[in-house]
């Protein structure tokens, strides 16, 4: 192979002096967004793509530490997980899964639009993706604040409130009496459950108005249910792992919002062309990875039986 067909004519030596700074940007005068040290758009794209894959590898290994902690504790202390997941809201988890899947689709569509040079489609798909990310964070916010209210903190501060325990008691009860039928764990459901509990040990269960409540704000029947809940030793570890996994994932969503916004600004400025769309693709890959991690987190945390 001779040298002639590889050295791009636009990188004639000496040309860089004409450019400002270090001569590293836009070295190829009439080839926008092709950095001076690359010979072609293809080389630049390949480098970027390999780079982003390697970055994703580091992300996978980064998360692997948390997955490892999860696996070790789940295998050695399964009771923590059987207990802890009672407090997670399966519906919200499922909704968030769908939200992220939608955002992955729109991201894939955005990449496609960028490759085809469809600027309008690209912009709108990115906007939808960012919107989904915000919805996801909003739902996570609701979940977190509910947990905090119920005293479901990481190990050292783990102190579930009586309401939280009552809720867990109902979940356990339901699971036992309705066989294995999964049950909704909505927050507002507590009272309703308390009312239609068909246990015999309190005849007045249905009559809220005249109920005597103890210092926990519970009726005697409810207190009995709460007392029947066996909180396993170190139950807080489940929540430690829950917060670490979802928290780190949430940070990645926020980083994703920032990255997609950057791409959005650049697409509004019209930077991307069918020859140069790398950044959209790279951010897309990152976003899909964040989705991928959630695909595992959802069943691992919310769908334990």
């Amino acid at each position: 192979m001779s040298t002639a067909d590889v050295v791009s004519p636009v990188t004639a030596p000496g040309e860089h002096h004409a450019h400002s700074g270090d001569g590293h940007d836009h070295g190829h005068g009439h080839q926008p967004h092709l950095a001076h040290h690359f010979e072609s758009y293809e080389q630049q794209f390949d480098a970027g793509k390999l780079g982003i894959w390697l970055f994703l590898v580091t992300e996978v290994l980064f998360f692997s530490g948390l997955f490892c902690a999860y696996v070790v504790f789940r295998v050695l202390y399964p009771e923590l997980f059987a207990f802890g997941h009672l407090f997670l809201n399966k519906e919200l988890g499922a909704i968030n899964t769908v939200v992220l899947l939608v955002s992955s689709l729109t991201m894939a569509l955005a990449v496609r639009a960028a490759q085809l040079g469809q600027r309008q489609v690209l912009i709108s798909m990115l906007v939808v993706t960012i919107a989904c990310a915000f919805v996801f964070m909003g739902i996570k916010y609701v979940e977190y604040t509910t947990k905090f209210r119920e005293g479901l903190f990481p190990a050292r501060y783990f102190a579930p409130t009586p309401e939280a325990l009552l809720h867990a008691a109902h979940m356990i009860h339901d699971a036992q009496s309705h066989g294995a039928a999964g049950h909704a764990a909505g927050d507002g459901a507590h009272d309703e459950h308390a009312a239609d509990t068909s246990h015999g040990h309190d005849a007045k269960a249905g009559d809220h108005a005249h109920e005597e409540v103890n210092k926990n704000g519970l009726t005697a029947a409810e207190q009995a249910m709460v007392d029947s809940v066996k909180v396993p030793a170190n139950a807080g570890l489940f929540f430690s792992i829950y917060y670490c996994l979802t928290g780190l994932h949430g940070i990645h969503i926020i980083a994703g919002i920032a990255a997609i916004s950057w791409i959005l600004v650049r697409s509004i400025k019209g930077h991307f062309t069918p020859l140069y769309f790398g950044p959209v693709e790279y951010v897309g890959l990152y976003w899909h990875l964040v989705d991928l991690i959630w695909i595992y987190l959802f069943p691992l945390l919310y769908l334990i039986h």
Binding site: V57, G65, L66
Partner: peptide, 30 residues
């Protein structure tokens, strides 16, 4: 590329351990 992220998460967990007591590495918390 392969090993350093694991150090990263280890240190992050250690920070969380000290800051909010996640207990993953602390025997008294299980």
């Amino acid at each position: 590329v392969l090993a350093t992220p694991v150090l990263g998460i280890t240190l992050l967990l250690l920070i969380a351990e000290r800051a909010v007591g996640i207990g993953i590495f602390q025997p008294e918390l299980g």
